[in-house]
Design a protein around this nucleic acid. Structure first.
Length: 264
DNA sequence: AATTTTTCCAACCGCTTGTAG
DNA sequence: ACTACAAGCGGTTGGAAAAAT
């Protein structure tokens, strides 16, 4: 006996969305918002669809900030590196790629990137190029070099913090070593048992200092972050209007100007 | 040109997680 | 502490489009 479906299948429409339905959902959400209740939304919007289906359609397709296709080399590298570090946690990976959804990243991985990773591993080509250098910042200095657009800090997009950048704190547990890129080959690759254990301990985010210590090829700044560890804890889940503010807060003892929701 | 195979991605399914009562 | 419900999430599937034969 299976779980009861969220909607009565016989009474709601299923399958591909028509342009009219898309427009109906889009205009309703734009006028009234989600209202915190997807289950009730279809009826209010006059749609003969399951709320779950509406939510998926909006999140994966209709949202105005969604990007489709056209993945850049940089995005490929982020996906490859995070997959090698945390496995198939698509929502976390997608959260580091503004405009991308978990479903989209998952499909992209399954259809294209996995093959590319295998090909790259077997040919020995460098699929994981190091990013640009970090800002020249001394923890003891209050002068900050802004690096807006720095791909190592994704703009964190929850609705209430739109346009802000999140500073992630380190976890307290250690991640197991990440296998070298060359070992990524093979469709069945998955994190090692040790890595899986570490991943299980991961809260609900990928913390940048983990990346600094674990995926050196993409985030070769472990020492830099280690020097800021205590400060990073204080700034956990702080949101800043720009990179300069964020680096400035990390480098000084002053109360951060950003919007903070600290874990400590 | 017709048919078959492969690729791609939107959508579904059901389990897990979070939260309000 | 427990229950019920909604949202979040990742695996899987169906079918359309493209490529190959």
């Amino acid at each position: 006996m299976g779980r009861a479906p969220c909607c009565d299948r016989a009474s709601v429409k299923r399958g591909p969305w028509s342009p009219e339905e898309d427009e109906q959902l889009r205009s309703y959400v734009q006028r009234h918002g989600i209202g915190g209740n997807w289950i009730a939304l279809p009826q209010k919007a006059g749609l003969n669809r399951c709320g779950k289906s509406c939510r998926l359609r909006w999140l994966n397709y209709l949202r105005p900030d969604i990007k489709h296709g056209g993945y850049t080399e940089q995005e490929d590298q982020v996906i490859l590196s995070l997959y090698s570090s945390i496995g198939s946690r698509w929502s976390i990976i997608a959260s580091k790629l503004p405009g991308r959804t978990d479903n989209d990243v998952k499909n992209y991985w399954n259809t294209k990137l996995k093959k590319k990773a295998v090909a790259g591993a077997t040919s020995g080509s460098g699929a994981f190029a190091a990013p640009a250098t970090p800002p020249a910042l001394s923890p003891a200095s209050s002068s900050v070099t802004s690096s807006s657009g720095d791909g190592r800090f994704a703009a964190y997009p929850p609705q209430q913090h739109q346009g802000l950048i999140r500073f992630d704190a380190p976890r307290t547990t250690e991640l197991a070593p990440v296998p070298p890129v060359a070992q990524l080959g093979g469709a069945a690759w998955a994190p090692s048992a040790a890595a899986s254990g570490a991943v299980a301990a991961l809260d609900d985010d990928v913390f940048l200092p983990d990346l600094g210590g674990g995926v050196e090829q993409l985030f070769p700044y472990g020492d830099f972050y280690a020097g800021l560890q205590d400060r990073a804890l204080e700034l956990s889940a702080c949101y800043f209007p720009n990179m300069a503010e964020m680096w400035g807060a990390a480098a000084s003892d002053a109360k951060p100007q950003g919007l903070c929701n600290t874990l400590t």
